[in-house]
């Protein structure tokens, strides 16, 4: 009896101390979401402007840039998966990885060979454990990605993509380097604090996203006045083709950066939610355990009393016999 009481007390203590860890994690994650959301917002003006510039350019330049044209029978496809570095984030990584598996299956059905590029330690260990080939991994910044990280990734992917331009059935083509024909990205979109959805997008050959949803009223007016007269002819310095060459890789990098930021916000949001329910559970558990401990203590006391009373009774009756 006394042993079980001691065991219960020990469990209460350990539950309480894990609960402290969970609620600390919850607070950290909550603070990080706010920061991550602010960074997502702060990166939007650039994304909007670069899209606008690109749309303007698209109207004037001939669009036969390799990053824009679909390749005939694509064979190898790069898939960039954005996962987190740390666990403790509920189903965050599981969801991204499941979405990735779906995409991989789809690509294989289409007769393409997917190549994995992984961001985040969790994704890395997932594929290593399953002995799957991974082309390249990056980790250490999943919670606070910087633009340099996106540049790093962008450089690798665009290099692979450009190398894939002249590939044929037999091998690497003229440059003898096997590249890829398409770039895909799987990351978690941050819709709200309560909903984060894993999404898969094709980055290249890219479709320039329309600026429609981003347009404000001022633009709408400009747009109206514009539609009546001829489209403005831009001057280009240097030539439109050279500009496109310089701009498109930056555009891809911007898309990767945006995805990393969204993923970071989603990661913190999932972690906050997971830690919230973990600390709630820990509290519940501690409450139940202390009820059991109280009952055990009470039972112990009752037993002691009845032992004393029983002992006294025995003495009294023994004395009465004398």
């Amino acid at each position: 009896m006394a042993g079980s009481l001691r065991a219960l007390r020990r469990r209460i203590r350990s539950t309480q101390s894990t609960k402290k860890i969970f609620s600390a994690q919850e607070l950290i994650a909550a603070a990080r979401i706010v920061r991550a959301q602010a960074r997502v917002e702060a990166s939007k003006p650039y994304a909007r402007e670069i899209t606008r510039v690109l749309s303007a350019l698209a109207g004037s330049a001939s669009l036969d840039h390799p990053l824009l044209t679909d390749r005939e029978n694509p064979r190898r496809v790069a898939v960039l998966v954005v996962t987190s570095d740390r666990g403790f984030a509920g189903s965050y990584n599981v969801n991204v990885l499941r979405r990735t598996e779906e995409l991989l299956a789809l690509l294989r059905d289409e007769g393409k060979e997917p190549l994995l590029y992984v961001v985040g330690r969790k994704g890395e260990t997932y594929y290593r454990f399953r002995d799957r080939d991974v082309e390249e991994t990056w980790s250490g910044f999943s919670e606070q990605p910087g633009y340099e990280n996106a540049q790093d990734i962008g450089r690798t992917l665009i290099a692979a993509f450009t190398a894939g331009e002249d590939d044929d059935e037999t091998g690497g083509g003229a440059d003898d380097v096997l590249g890829v024909d398409e770039l895909h990205i799987v990351y978690t979109e941050f819709r709200s604090l309560l909903s984060q959805v894993p999404v898969a997008n094709r980055m290249a050959p890219l479709v320039v996203e329309e600026v429609d949803e981003l347009r404000d009223d001022r633009d709408a007016q400009v747009e109206e006045s514009r539609s009546s007269d001829i489209t403005p002819s831009y001057e280009f310095e240097p030539s439109p083709e050279q500009l496109l060459d310089a701009l498109l890789p930056k555009y891809v990098t911007t898309r990767i950066y945006a995805a990393l930021l969204e993923a970071a916000a989603s990661e913190s949001a999932s972690r906050r939610r997971a830690m919230k329910s973990a600390s709630d559970n820990a509290e519940e558990l501690a409450k139940n355990l202390s009820r059991q401990a109280n009952a055990a203590r009470q039972a112990e006391i009752t037993q002691e009393i009845s032992e004393i009373v029983g002992g006294a009774d025995a003495l009294v009756s023994a004395n009465a016999d004398d």
Partner: peptide
């Protein structure tokens, strides 16, 4: 670039 400049894109 001064006000009224014609549209331009430059690197």
């Amino acid at each position: 670039v001064m006000p009224g400049h014609s549209p331009l894109l430059g690197e």
